[in-house]
Write a protein that binds this DNA or RNA. Sequence first.
DNA 1: GCCAACGTTGGC
DNA 2: GCCAACGTTGGC
Length: 160
Amino acid sequence: MSKKYWLMKSEPTVFSFDNLMAKPDATDHWEGVRNYQAHNYMREMQKDDLVLFYHSNCEIPGIVGIAKVIREAYPDHTSWDASSRYYDPKSSLQNPRWFMVDVQSKKKFRHIISLKELRKVPELQEMNLLRKGQRLSVMPVMQKDFEKIVKLAEATYSRS
DNA sequence: GCCAACGTTGGC
DNA sequence: GCCAACGTTGGC
């Protein structure tokens, strides 16, 4: 099966791209997805799929870098941890209700590709991310859009 | 802090 | 199964 592309949102005050880079092996599990549609997308992820890392609910929302899926979906242990903010009493070790993947940071953009900037790119206007009212924290990205965003990031490098 | 646009819950 | 009330997301 061919590689797929995704976008995952995180609030940088909770977990930022820098936090991911600082982890051992620049790798961490992606805990806390508690929306079924986002969760279903996450379960479709395959090893080596690439992920746009998006910072949400912050001063400058936008894409900050690229990560890679290094472990496919497995039970999210925070869902049965009563002390976790992601605790779900309907989930248990025996019958897990939520899953997570492991991701590794791959490349940090020198500058954030802000939501504002994305909205100015004609080719990207069909992205799920830019659709009104869509709030999924995990969503698929078309290959052409992924490549366009990487190009934007590279153009930013050469300009500076 | 506001509020639009969702998703979820629970009474009926 | 309907739907009002409530909670959450996330840009602004």
